[in-house]
Simulated scan of single mutants.
Amino acid sequence: MDDTPTDPQGGRHALVVVYPVVNANPRYRRVDILGRRVGKAHSLRDVAEFCRRAGLEDIDVEADDRVQWIGGGPRQWQE
Rank of each mutant, 00 (worst) to 15 (best):
R75V: 03
E57Q: 14
T4C: 14
I70E: 09
C51E: 09
V38Q: 00
R29T: 05
V61I: 11
S43T: 03
G55M: 06
T4M: 15
A48F: 08
L34T: 09
E49D: 14
G35Y: 04
W77Q: 02
I59N: 02
W77H: 10
T6W: 00
T6D: 06
R75L: 07
I59M: 04
S43A: 12
L15P: 01
L44T: 01
G11S: 13
N23M: 15
Q76N: 12
D7E: 10
R12D: 00
W77T: 03
G73K: 02
G72S: 09
D32L: 14
D46C: 12
R30I: 14
V22M: 13
P8D: 04
P5T: 02
A63Y: 06
H42C: 02
I70G: 01
V38D: 00
I33Y: 08
G72V: 05
M1N: 14
L44Q: 12
V31Y: 10
D60C: 10
Y19F: 12
V38L: 01
I33T: 07
D65Y: 01
D2F: 11
N23P: 08
R27D: 08
P5Y: 04
H42G: 06
E79F: 13
T4W: 11
G10C: 00
T4Q: 15
G39K: 03
Y19L: 12
D58P: 04
R45E: 15
Y19I: 05
A14R: 01
G10T: 00
D3L: 12
G55W: 09
E62A: 09
A54R: 07
H13M: 09
R37A: 10
I59L: 09
I70W: 11
V21S: 07
A24L: 12
Q68V: 02
H42W: 04
R52V: 02
R75Y: 02
E57C: 12
L15A: 12
A24H: 06
E79I: 10
